[in-house]
Amino acid sequence: MKIRVIDLEFSYSSVPVLENICLEVGKSEIVSVLGPNGAGKSTLIKCIDRILKPNKGTVFIDEKDLRLFSQLEIAKKIGYIPQGAKYSFSATVFEVILMGRKPHITWRTSEEDIDRVVEVIKMLNLEEFSMRDVNELSGGQQQRVFIARALAQEPEILLLDEPTSNLDIKVQLEVLDIIKEVVKKREMSAIMAMHDLNLASRYSDKIIMMRDGKIFAVGEPSQVLTPENIKSVYGVEVEVVKSNGSTFVLPLRPLRGNFN
């Protein structure tokens, strides 16, 4: 197993946000974390990258305890793309992607760093934008820039917090195609927090469904995305359709009142 999360617990000033989280992700695997707002998806992702320090439990990468790693060593292993990523000052696409090289250099950019950046620029088809200001790009183009930054970091693991939020449907598919492609090609592992059940179903090898900071169900998309699970986790009545070997969720109506 590439990543092994064991008994992770986290609380914001004594309010528990994550409890008893255990999960495993293998090489070349994409795992989606699903759950309603406030279920703890983002917190889980931040805890895995040790952006937040868990109160209990730990994360192992290649069977090595992350607690023994410095933040810089973790940065060489894990790339993180936050929810609604943006760059709030004037900077060119090239400069933003170059920042991904940070864990590998202190100040001077070598020819190798520039080559790496050009490589990911090509990989994500950002050639024509390389000298444009990131703030001038569309949402989908910007998201590609942030994925490129994480790839320039050359991590073995990608953590993505709602990579498709605020993107139109075509761009959502494009972005997820890119993620899937690099995960398979570079034998990486990816964990992404997702809202769209159908996209999660289509692109994930495994789905983790969370409710109130705990894992409610784990398994392949077709095992987890059942009307019963979705009803108890989201409080929505749905119909699940299987077509061409994929699982699709058709929402019918929200349940009223206490649905647990």
């Binding site: 933040q71 900077a91 920042m99 970091q153």
Partner: peptide, 21 residues
């Protein structure tokens, strides 16, 4: 200076994920 670039533009979380405090 470069650390400051990342902190100011990309935010604290991304900075941490790139190994900066």
């Amino acid at each position: 200076a470069w650390d400051v670039n990342i902190i100011m533009g990309a935010g604290d979380d991304t900075a941490k994920s790139l190994g900066i405090n």
